[in-house]
Amino acid sequence: MRATAWTALGDETAEDVASMDTTIREILADSGWLAVDVAALSDGDDLYAAGLTSHGSVNLMLALEERFDIEFPEQLLRRRTFESIAAIREAVTGLRNGTAGA
């Protein structure tokens, strides 16, 4: 399933960013990988401190790949990529724009 609002690659509008944030938060909330309420987290909060495990981050990645129709390249498969909602958004945006890992 591909979110149509993002099919035009390039400059994300503020709305796109907000919508992507919502989707990332939905994935996190549905998963049960975090030990805290996602609504209580700010964009920059450390997800690992919120209970995200290595096992959880793999599943998070799979869910992001499915939802955004992207594939994480090997160089993004590291701890830092999934450390916060902002970091995830940056990685996903980069992949959608073809600038990931640059």
Partner: peptide
């Protein structure tokens, strides 16, 4: 088990 989980996304490059 841990490795099996990582292999769901890891690619051997």
């Amino acid at each position: 088990g841990n490795t099996a989980n990582l292999l769901l996304v890891h690619k051997d490059t």
